[in-house]
Write a protein that binds this DNA or RNA. Structure first.
Lengths: 294, 294
DNA sequence: TAAACATGATGCCCTCCCGGTATTACTTGA
DNA sequence: TCAAGTAATACCGGGAGGGCATCATGTTTA
């Protein structure tokens, strides 16, 4: 294999068509340059320069090899720049998971903020439920998630992005929609209820059970995604407790009603990431977003 | 600048994720390989491998640099192959000039023969009159010409490709077209004649003057290209002596008549090339076409 | 026509880089 | 606490590559 020095030497001679001047340009003397070219020609296996004691010119093979040599040198000088950019987090990939509901509230502004901070980082977005995001963060398939508690704070750092209220989704034609006051638990005692899955959507399940007086015999469906719940409400299968951001899902035939409850904005959305994640783009982003650890 | 050895070393370690095994694969021992990687990281200016005493893994920058390193190695191993192919004449460029008339006879078969011999050589064709071809061959802008004598045999080698008769082009409606015998000089004594330029088309001019009894007072036009002559005949401006291959030009309203003359096929077409041309594709082509010098 | 000049190649020397061997430092698991 | 595994470091010797001096050869000039 030839060396980069030989390539630089060859390029210089090919451009100057004169060993002496080329050597001068390379800050060396002519004899070792001659030997470099000889060695290069030997390893390449073809004459690259046609030279007698008076004149130097490129052979056909030399012209083609000059192209390749220039390409090689360009690639070789770019490669470290790219590597350094990626190491510093200014360039690279960031894989972000998000839940369908959060996509309609925080995702847009967050992405704008991110591309202002690290404009050359490619963002891969994946819609995933909280459990899948946690899984992705653990296996390293994801750099950051937009998810809801609970998660293992030993493994993950997080930052509270957003806090919102719970509202009641009812079919638009439902009598409750005309009520001029906040909904009480009492109002729902005979209403068919579309409820969160206690396993797949444990966060919402726990929240609803804690804050509202649920009659479990009224539950007609158990689902894991907010979007599904609202669709079922639109289909008049019942009423459902959903986070306020669900109002932005844009599904017709559904009204969202305020709930009278102890806590004003009990629903939390966090940015979470693996504590020992190494992706420099993530590290830089966290630093510049000033997401203090924990 | 890093070296190709460092790149090969890095690629091996990145693939094995183990210095010992990588060193084994490279037929060397582990310590110098460790130093290679350290040196590479130093010149690149970024950590490429995240390693403790137990585990080795690629950093984000390392993954990107691995791509570049592979690209570099691939390019570096292809470059000599290309150069050798070009030096041997199996690949490259061949610039061939041809006259309009020859394009309709010999060019097609010749190109087929060429692409059978050197299929990977790119052929650039240029339609040029003999004089321009000679010029192109001298300046090196052309590798081979398809032209007619005379040319300087000190400078050019040549090979007779083709020999053909002269015919008389007359308008299809002309009385001579109905004659059932070869045309004699006597038949043309009162015919307006479209004649070759004695400077621009000296070959044909000399030939016609030598073989036929021209009355110069009959000459109504002096032109340099066969195509132009036939077009003028079609426009009934006169009759003209043209090589037999002009019958293939496909211009309507022209009849081509046999000439009674001393020589059967006096018109020659040669392949000519610069004696000291260096284009390997040309050298190989001449060798394989068995165009003996001279 | 001969001498001076220009230019690439070669011979020789010396330094520095790179690889090998031996060893160390550190982590992990029993 | 010890043994095993693995990357890093210390030290040494050989070879590659650069510099200086010179040669070989072709061109220009007096």
């Amino acid at each position: 294999m030839f060396t980069f020095d030989q390539l630089t030497g060859f390029i210089a001679v090919a451009e100057e068509l004169h060993f002496g001047r080329a050597a001068e340009r390379l800050n060396m003397t002519q004899p070792p340059l001659s030997r470099q070219i000889q060695k290069l020609e030997k390893t390449v296996g073809a004459e690259l320069l046609d030279r007698d004691n008076r004149r130097v010119e490129l052979t056909a093979a030399g012209r083609a090899f000059l192209d390749e040599a220039r390409r090689l040198m360009a690639l070789a000088s770019r490669a470290p720049v790219t590597a350094r950019r990626i190491a510093s987090g200014r360039q690279g990939h960031l894989r972000i998971g998000f839940t369908a509901a959060s996509g309609f509230s925080i995702l847009g502004p967050l992405l704008e903020e991110i591309s202002a901070i690290v404009p050359d980082v490619d963002i891969d977005l994946q819609e995933l439920v909280t459990g899948e995001q946690i899984q992705g963060l653990l296996t390293g398939e994801l750099d950051m998630g937009l998810a809801r508690p609970p998660f293992d704070t030993e493994v993950f750092d997080s930052h509270l992005l957003y806090r919102e209220s719970m509202v009641l989704a009812v079919p638009a034609s439902h009598p409750l929609a005309d009520l001029k006051r906040d909904i009480q638990s009492e109002d729902l005692k005979d209403e068919p209820l579309i409820m969160h899955s206690p396993t797949q959507a444990r966060y919402f399940y726990d929240l609803v059970v804690r804050l509202h007086d649920i009659r479990h015999e009224n539950v007609v469906h158990t689902v894991s995604q907010i979007l599904t719940m609202v669709s079922l409400v639109a289909a008049k299968r019942g009423v459902a407790f959903v986070p306020h951001s669900a109002t932005a899902l844009g599904i017709r035939g559904v009204s969202f009603l305020r709930l009278a409850s102890g806590e004003e904005e009990p629903v939390e959305l966090h940015a979470i990431w693996n504590r020992d994640a190494k992706n420099p783009a993530l590290v830089r982003l966290l630093r510049d977003l000033e997401f203090a650890a924990g």
